[in-house]
């Protein structure tokens, strides 16, 4: 058997390299999977301790509005009603998305349909910069500009849902915009040409053809924006007022899930009910982020079906 024949039938340096490379890559990806599993497990197990260990009623936790985890109410139950935080979190999220969406749509339409070359070139860095500004800086600007401004108009402290909404509006704007741009770009060129050839004006084309066929993508963009708003902690915490009250209006101090967590987790002792209750808030955040994820997947599937048919 000659040398070449032998080499053909033996492992070589290349075989070992490939094996090593695979081991490295599989390890890295395994690490990420393990990490995600750990996060879910840790937060979930801490989060349900309130209900399993401290015997708080889940329903009561979600629907009552007294949050004094250290104290008991008249019936001897711990007072852990998370409703004010839940309501506030959803309010700022929905309001921010509601305000930001028209702006995001406008900018995205401008970048793809009206001035696809110059406009896109000019606005792309604007969006990237808005994404790049750290949330504490948004919080600081909110604190030094928006809060006094609101105070000036509506009186009171200026802290509250309205300030939170305005700060979040600017923060989710780039997210929604850039994803909307992607989905508008994905609309095939011949849709536009066909519509314009039929004598439709540009706006009719945009409104009746392009926005319609990009709807799943735009909804996905909005959900991503909402996920960002829902999970945002510090910027909101700086302008929301951090009072654990059921929000009565948009300009009274309130508290979101995230703001409550950032303020209090360091002031409670691990393993006690006040601390467990906070982890339950974290669990709500985690679950909501999973829900947003599922909605995005669902929309993605629907979008695919729509494009395929």
């Amino acid at each position: 058997m000659d040398d070449i024949q032998r080499k053909l039938q033996q492992n070589s340096k290349a075989t070992r390299e490939d094996r090593l490379g695979k081991v490295i890559c599989y390890t890295c990806i395994g690490f990420i999977i393990l990490l995600v599993a750990c996060i879910l497990y840790f937060i979930a197990s801490k989060g349900i301790a309130t209900f399993t260990k401290d015997h708080v009623n889940v329903w009561q936790f979600l629907t009552t509005s007294n949050w004094e985890p250290g104290n008991l109410d008249s019936k001897g139950h711990p007072m852990v009603g998370a409703l004010p935080m839940i309501v506030t979190s959803f309010s700022v999220t929905l309001l921010a998305a509601l305000v930001a969406t028209p702006f995001a749509l406008g900018v995205a339409i401008f970048m793809t349909e009206i001035s696809a070359k110059k406009g896109a070139k000019m606005l792309q860095p604007v969006i990237e910069l808005l994404v790049g500004i750290p949330s504490v800086v948004y919080g600081f600007i909110g604190l030094s500009l928006i809060v006094p401004f609101i105070r000036g108009i509506f009186g009171g402290t200026g802290f509250g849902i309205l300030s939170g909404t305005l700060v979040l509006f600017v923060m989710v704007l780039p997210t929604i915009t850039s994803l909307t741009v992607d989905s508008l770009k994905a609309v095939p060129m011949h849709y536009r040409q066909a519509s314009l050839a039929l004598g439709a004006t540009r706006w009719q084309t945009i409104y009746k053809v392009i926005l319609r066929s990009a709807t799943p993508g735009i909804l996905t963009a909005i959900i991503f924006g909402m996920a960002r708003a829902f999970g945002e902690a510090l910027a909101v915490q700086m302008v929301i007022g951090n009072a654990i009250l059921m929000p009565k209006n948009l300009v009274s101090p309130a508290s979101t899930l995230t703001s409550k967590l950032t303020t209090d987790i360091g002031n409670t002792v691990m393993g006690t009910l006040p601390n467990d209750a906070l982890w339950s808030l974290a669990l709500i955040l985690l679950l909501m982020s999973l829900v947003f994820n599922m909605i995005v997947r669902f929309l993605g599937k629907r979008g695919n079906i729509k494009n395929a048919s």
């Binding site: 990420i32 991503f224 996920a227 967590l261 947003f292 994820n293």
Partner: peptide, 9 residues
Amino acid sequence: VLSSLPSVV
């Protein structure tokens, strides 16, 4: 999932 987790979590 990891990328959509809030950074506070």
